[in-house]
Each structure stands twice: as C-alpha cells, then as structure tokens.
C-alpha cells in the first residue's frame, strides 16, 4: 500500500516533470533531431537564465551609444536574420562586411560565423559587442552599465542566486536564450512525424533536394554546418576568402559555413554577402554552376519543397519576441 502510493507519487512527479520541462525549460530535444553539440553540463539550462539572456539580446544597453541591440541585426520575424540590408548595419550607421545569418538550432553547431572564426557560442557575443562597426563597446563598460541598472542585478540574482554580474554569467545567459531558439515545427517536420503529407509537387521537390542538395544541406537540420564552396563568383570589392582566412589552409579558401535551408522565406537576402534577393535567384546560381539541372519543372518543384521548411510557429513564437513585460518592469523601477 505504502509502496504503491510512493510509486504513484513518483509517476505523477515524472509526468509533471516532463510536462514542465516541455513548457518551462523549452529546451526539448526534438525527437527527430540528433544529439546537440552544446555541452549543457557546463551551462545548466534554466528559465531564469533564458529570461536574462533574452533581455540582454534585446537591450541596446550593450552598444556604445545605446542604439543597437543584438536584435537590431537579428530580428525574430526574420528567423533572427536581417532583411533590410545585404550587409549588416551597426552603430553610427557603419556597414559591416557580411550578411547577418539567421539564428536557430545553434546547439547543433560547433563553429560560428560564416567563416567559423568563433569557436564556441558562449564567446560569440564578444565579437559584435566589441566590433567597432557593430556595437563598439568594451566588456568592462558593458558589465558596469548593467550593474548600474536596477533591472539587471535583479535578473542576475534570479538566474544565479546572487546579483554578481560578470563576463561568464552574461555570456552564458545570452547563449541560453539563443540555444532556446529551436526551429523544428515546419510542415517538413510534421511530415517526418507522420502528422502531415507532402503534395505531389512537394514530393518531386524533395526528390530534387535529395539528389542535388542533401549532401551539404543535410536533414533534419538542413546543414552539416561544415565549410564548403558553392562556387559563387568572387565579389572583388569585398574579397572575402571565407574560412581560408581563419585556417590559412589553401583548401579552405572561399569556403563558407553551409547555412540551413529552414525558414528561407523569412531570411532573405541569401549567402554570406546577401547577394541574392530570392530563392529563384539562388536556384539560377546553382543551375549556372551545374549543381542543379535546368528542366523547366525543377525550380517550381524544388521551391515548393523548400517552402515546407518554413516554421511560422518558430518565427512568431511570443517567447522569442521583444520582452516587453521585462522592460516595462524596468520602467516601473526607474520612476
């Protein structure tokens, strides 16, 4: 009798736990995805850290003139890419040299940036923070500014048990928010989980994808996240050598990180320099370099399939948007 009760209690506990894990932590491994690369044991996932990370991500306090936040270049409505400009714009209206990539499924990536210059997501934020033409700040100054607010000591306290603000905590919280950006609910995903079916055109597109694209843009993440060349003509004004300028290995010259094909409808323009405005232009490029056939049905069929990779529930997820409720709370403080 006693034992039975305990078992029942345990079973309920497990149920409750899996439910809350689902809902609160958000970091649920989609069942059809591989194991993540990110080591969560060195940065234990928690809702409070995600909240802190989300506030930091949307707060222009991270930039020198308090004008630019991470979200200025990585907008939730564009799957955290940037669509107004081919090349990113930073403080004092300066123009960078590359297109801001979409941010999702980052836990499955080992190297970051188009050329893999960044070796861990926890240190990624240091690059835009201190880049003269992005946010133009110093780490010291950012931490001091955060410490002077009423909001952040509180958010750090909630996340870490005391209000100490330091590099490690700031960076790992930013990572936590970004790691929570999982896109796994497109039509394609529903088909994989037997919850939906492809139209016959989407099926033909899937076959084309499997033949021509799959080995670089591999399912289910739609990238191997390796560095490869897709034979874009060199832009002589940018002279971007890609991964080659990081490794100094000849075979890496002009290779770039393979981007995911998920959410393409939201992440235009395409490629590291944003040179293509729509998917049709991308496919024309692949046809020009003979990586795709030129049958008249190819483009419409393949595009039909690519559109099944759009994940609107990710792009419009209220948990990923500008955290108005957190910043309203701050305004309350300042009064």
């Amino acid at each position: 009798m006693e034992a039975k009760k305990v078992k029942l209690f345990l079973a309920m506990g497990v149920l409750l736990f899996s439910f809350s894990y689902d809902k609160l932590l958000g970091w649920r491994l989609p069942t059809h995805f591989p194991k993540p690369i990110y080591n969560f044991s060195s940065n234990v996932y928690s809702e409070a850290k995600v909240t802190l990370g989300r506030a930091l991500f949307y707060d222009p306090i991270l930039s020198l003139d308090n004008s630019i936040s991470c979200a200025s270049c990585h907008s939730s409505y564009n799957a955290f890419a940037h669509t107004d400009h081919a090349l990113s714009h930073g403080i004092f209206d300066s123009v960078g040299t590359r297109n801001a990539p979409a941010l999702f499924n980052l836990a499955w990536q080992k190297l970051f940036m188009w050329d893999g210059a960044v070796n861990h997501i926890d240190v990624q934020a240091l690059a835009p923070l201190t880049h003269a033409s992005e946010m133009g700040e110093t780490l010291q100054n950012v931490l001091q500014k955060l410490g002077r607010t009423k909001l952040y000591p509180n958010l750090f306290y909630r996340a870490f048990g005391d209000s100490l603000i330091n590099t490690e905590r700031m960076l790992k919280s930013l990572s936590q928010f970004q790691l929570s950006l999982i896109s796994a609910q497109s039509k394609y995903d529903r088909v994989k989980l037997n919850l939906d079916t492809f139209t016959s055109q989407e099926k033909r597109g899937y076959q084309l994808y499997t033949k021509y694209c799959q080995h670089c843009h591999t399912e289910p993440l739609f990238s191997t996240y390796q560095f490869k060349q897709n034979f874009l003509p060199l832009d002589s004004s940018l002279l971007d050598y890609g991964r080659g300028s990081i490794t100094h290995n000849k075979q890496d010259t002009f290779t770039f990180k393979i981007p995911s094909l998920r959410n393409l409808s939201y992440t235009y323009p395409y490629m590291h320099d944003g040179r293509f405005l729509n998917i049709s232009q991308v496919l024309t490029h692949y046809q020009n370099v003979e990586m795709l056939d030129r049958l008249s049905s190819t483009k419409p069929d393949l595009i039909a399939f690519l559109l099944t990779l759009n994940d609107s529930s990710f792009v419009f997820n209220p948990q990923f948007k500008y955290p108005r409720e957190i910043f309203m709370w701050r305004e309350g403080f300042n009064k």
């Binding site: 210059a117 070796n119 861990h120 240190v123 590099t167 960076l171």
Partner: peptide
C-alpha cells in the same frame, strides 16, 4: 581555447581574448 571557463585569469575582461576570431 574551445571550452574556456571564461573566468579568473581566463576572463576575457583581462584583455587577452580576441573577439573577432576566438
């Protein structure tokens, strides 16, 4: 280098960390 604790002597605030290329 690829799994830094980011604290103590290894805190990037010491000015010994490259940010544009880890």
């Amino acid at each position: 280098q690829e799994n830094s604790p980011l604290s103590g002597d290894l805190d990037p605030i010491n000015g010994m960390y490259w940010t544009w290329q880890s």
